[in-house]
Design a protein around this nucleic acid. Structure first.
Lengths: 211, 211
DNA sequence: CCGTTGCTCCCCTGATTTCGGTATAGGAAG
DNA sequence: CTTCCTATACCGAAATCAGGGGAGCAACGG
């Protein structure tokens, strides 16, 4: 039995989708909403396996909602519902963490199948989307956003140690320098990376591939 | 008129592909080769719009050839030819810079169309490939023994905030809970992750894909 | 009903970190 | 030779964090 959440601002469509889902005995609609503003609480509360999310909604849009959900749950499968198939929003949604997408005009035919499909790790996806994905993949590959910052060798070294959980004291010992020197380096790192804590520095370093 | 280069190690297939291309008046086969070892010089010399590249070739394989070509020409469209559709090589080829991908058994039907298609920025792509791409995109590093630890939703949420550089105080404000509660959660996180600092917790979370 | 779990809140102490300075020696660059 | 950069070192105040304790409450399952 798959628990499902539905977000769709069009009342009649939302209702008919609910009816459609009710026809499948292995699908259970845990809740349906016209706005995504409460999505975090709802996901926490209802723990769905699948979320059906309209892209265009007043207030919190579907893409932002996906992003939010992904911050608290990396496993729930999210299927986007949309009326456009050549919309860049679809791509954004995929990048935000959506698992698949369906055109609204095809919903009645494919929805239940698509849900089962997505649970088996085979995202429903129209051919047009694949193209956009490929292109997106190849562009950013050339633009690895080389954020070098001006980090010196010593600073990178200290950043690496930090990411391993070493305290300043231990780093000083390992590098055979004074605790105060380590402090100075870290101050400089903060300055260069525009951060103000170890945690953020480590996060930035890891995300930008500096270590 | 589109200039085309063909790389295919099977002699008879290479010949029949050449004949196939000759049937289309808007396509011009600039050259065909059984090995990709000279691809760089040939691209420089013949300046093709499109390259048809077999994946499996003796010597320099098709994927490596793509990588090389991309270092000197970012605009030429490259279509991979292969007999397998569920092969990880396909994904590698895409990452290396291939624009599209065709199964050999479908060549005779689709090749001329595919070439025109790719020139219009619409990479030909069999449906199964699209799925592979999406999945690879979304689960880039899930393979190395995804350690779950017993982190609760709330704890993951706080870990995420930490990695953004938020201080405990700010996290408390954002989540509308007390500072002490945040500290309790963090204490539990440390316990579960077996770490002793924010930096190490963030590092571990990022490396193990928990956030 | 009881035990467990997740989330919440509180207190305390000592250690650590942040951040503001200042400063010297050596090397690279101008 | 002077300037800039890097690494080094020190001081001190203020803020934050780690680690220890205890406790209430709601939900869930046996």
């Amino acid at each position: 039995m798959l628990g499902i959440l539905l977000y769709e601002d069009n009342d009649s469509l939302r209702e008919s989708l609910g009816n459609l889902l009710a026809l499948s005995k292995d699908l259970l609609l845990l809740g349906s909403f016209s706005r995504a503003s409460g999505v975090l609480d709802q996901v926490r509360e209802l723990k769905p396996e699948v979320i059906l999310m309209d892209i265009d909604m007043p207030g919190t849009n579907g893409i932002e909602a996906v992003r939010q959900v992904r911050t608290i749950d990396k496993k729930v499968q999210i299927i986007m519902l949309t009326i456009f198939d050549d919309n860049r929003h679809v791509l954004d949604a995929i990048c935000a963490g959506a698992s698949g997408y369906l055109l609204k005009k095809h919903l009645s035919d494919h929805l239940p199948d698509a849900i089962r499909q997505v649970m088996q790790g085979e995202p429903p996806m129209s051919p047009g989307i694949a193209r956009m994905i490929i292109q997106k993949m190849q562009e950013p590959a050339m633009k690895p956003a080389a954020p070098d910052y001006g980090l010196t060798t010593r600073e990178k070294e200290i950043l690496t140690q930090l990411s391993k959980g070493k305290g300043l004291k231990m780093i000083a010992a390992d590098l055979a320098i004074s605790l105060d020197t380590v402090r100075t380096h870290i101050k400089n790192i903060y300055e260069k990376l525009q951060v103000h804590s170890q945690a953020e520095a480590v996060s930035k370093a890891l995300n930008d591939g500096l270590v």
